[in-house]
Design a protein around this nucleic acid. Sequence first.
RNA 1: GGGGGCGUGGUGUAGCGGCUAACAUGCGGCCCUGUCAAGGCCGAGAUCGCGGGUUCGAACCCCGUCGCUCCCGCCA
Length: 439
Amino acid sequence: MERTLIKDLRGKIDQTVKLQGWLQTLRDQKKMQFLILRDPTGLVQVAHWKPNDEILASNIASLGAETALTIIGKVIDNPVVKLNQLEVQLESLVVENLAESPLPFDPFAETLPALDYRLDWRYMDLRRAYNYLLFQVQTTMEMAMREYWLKHDFIEIHSPKLMGTPSESGAELFSLDYFERKAYLAQSPQFYKQMAMAAGFERIFEIGPVFRADPSFTARHMTEFTGVDLEISWIDSHEDVMAFEENWLQYVYARVKELHGEAIKETFGVELVVPQVPFPRIPMRDAVEILKSRGYVLPADKKGDIDPGGEREIASYVKEIYDHDFVFLTDWPIGVRPFYHMRLAGDETLTRSFDLIANGLEITTGAQREHRPEILAKQALEKGLHLEPIQYYIDFFRYGCPPHGGFGLGLSRLLMVMLNLPNIREAVYIFRGPTRLNP
RNA sequence: GGGGGCGUGGUGUAGCGGCUAACAUGCGGCCCUGUCAAGGCCGAGAUCGCGGGUUCGAACCCCGUCGCUCCCGCCA
């Protein structure tokens, strides 16, 4: 017999069906046993008249909550039952996997354990419908991203995560033994995305792991996370990259709203707003002035940079003035940007770069890249870098590489913003942090 | 890496110098009942993170340590 999902039971009144799921609650009475069965699509009451089968009854009596069951029974329309006015009269039951009792915690209790404890028992925590929906949304997000990319002629790449030389600064880098030498875990696919531009791929994306040996303990950092990266050729400036990103994100939001808007409202209490394009753009120079005018005091050593508090302040300014949840902060000073960001024509102290702030959280950094090898090398030297380890990268641009740019976006950060989650550890399947390597 | 906060039965909390450590939930037993956030009674379960100190007396005060957490730095 084929399995029936709980959501489809209404259409199977008076038929015998097979259900598979978890024992959410057992109410064992003198003559009757009620098993509340859960599968990913819902809950249903299974009723057993004990005198029918006393052996089965005593079997059921011993079942712990969360036991995995296969149940066969007849679907009955019963207005008395509060749970969807529906019940299944039990005919037979197979215990697929008994749940030990007591459970480490009850995922369906009124008060949940602290997040850190729940992460210890992540597979129990993930049984909550809340988490199921969360990852359905993430799946749709990624699907929508890909739909949009494929419509726009993108190619997917998978760049290596084992590196022989540190890309960029060398800080925040995990190193490991690699036979007789040292290897590093990629803290960005940056160089390889650009290599694809040199390869003539023109438009590429990658969704893959990123590693940062960054000992930060915040609600928005992880040492391993999923990066969403893209790179496009033949751009005129970073404006082209921003224009692409906002349209792409608008599409992603629209798709998520289309498929999960109702469920998100119900479960997360969030009315998903598909963002209007274009997103507001504020050059950093103006952003600093805006903060000043609002009385926000930036730390003295910031030199054109903005701290997270300032980012939140700008976000609320944008909300007030533009009624928008997103804002591009553009034209960052060279001091706070990597050497490969192209400089702004007319002001060599600024870069053709941007961050995307969503509800006050930084979710993206992007830029037009410097594709002229001499200038790139010069900028690297200015930053105090040695050319030798990055020479292979500079060489990408020696044999005909189009002007290009792109961005990187944190998948979990986007999910966090979209569902208004307080902590990124809830927005990721398995969290990795400085003191968290298990499970 | 810097600063603040918190560690009490399985879990969530209360107690903050005199406790035989309280409550809820979960767990075990019994009773009642077509139950449905079920109800009632009984019971097991914590040397109050760990180490040291102050005190007649420490879960409570002090120091150290470990863990967690939040903020800052840094970032996606």
